[in-house]
Write a protein that binds this DNA or RNA. Structure first.
Lengths: 107, 107
DNA sequence: TGGCTATTTGGCAATATTGCCAAATAGCCA
DNA sequence: TGGCTATTTGGCAATATTGCCAAATAGCCA
């Protein structure tokens, strides 16, 4: 495998890694409805604000969200709306999992 | 957030986590061309066979691939072909990243 | 300026992931 | 059966991720 391909795979893996956490998925889902400030998430996700902030920074670092400071609040929005479709496929993996498990059970 | 939603987010996050590794992404890309045996990957990815085998088991556990033993080889195939489309979006995140970086540079 | 709110950053302990080596397992063939 | 090939599993050290607390930062308003 050449090093360009390696770099590309690594770049993709980093994006998936950034999405691969329940709180961060929640954030992305919420942002599909429109922009939110950090405080909005703090209530909904039961975690320390500093933890939420770090999750947001992971998503920002990965290029998935953008932030904008207005007054003393910071608003986040999705940079990449297609993330939504993306999940249709994840759902179909979940369905496959279900099939797999019921097949195992019925043996 | 109710516990059903939490479970669902966790299930999705687990699938993304399973995909979020360069070698595993490589495997998924290869499998889009058709089934492969473990030995095929061993050559292409420069890692110990036991490492490859563990990556495959992560993908299998997540419901992304299925395996079948034939003779003394084990063949893997994608359970969920849509994983492919999925990556179109990941690419667009990469493009956003590029924009972001060039914007920063031109400041 | 001082005090308040919102958010980020630093540091750290607990936990999870990765990748290797060695050993186990399973099928094939002589 | 014994030896071979292909693959998986166990174990472990190195590394990465997570989530908290405390402290820093930035904007607002009196």
């Amino acid at each position: 495998m050449d090093s360009a391909r390696k770099n590309h795979l690594e770049a993709r893996a980093n994006i998936l890694k950034a999405l691969a956490h329940p709180s961060r998925l929640y954030i992305v889902e919420e942002l599909q409805q429109g922009e939110r400030c950090v405080c909005d998430f703090a209530e909904q996700i039961g975690a320390d604000i500093s933890t939420i902030s770090k999750h947001l920074s992971v998503l920002k670092q990965a290029g998935i969200v953008a932030d904008e400071k207005r007054g003393n609040q910071v608003f986040y929005r999705l940079r990449v709306p297609c993330i939504l479709n993306f999940f249709g496929c994840v759902e179909s993996v979940l369905e496959e999992q279900a099939k797999q498990h019921s097949a195992l059970l019925s043996r």
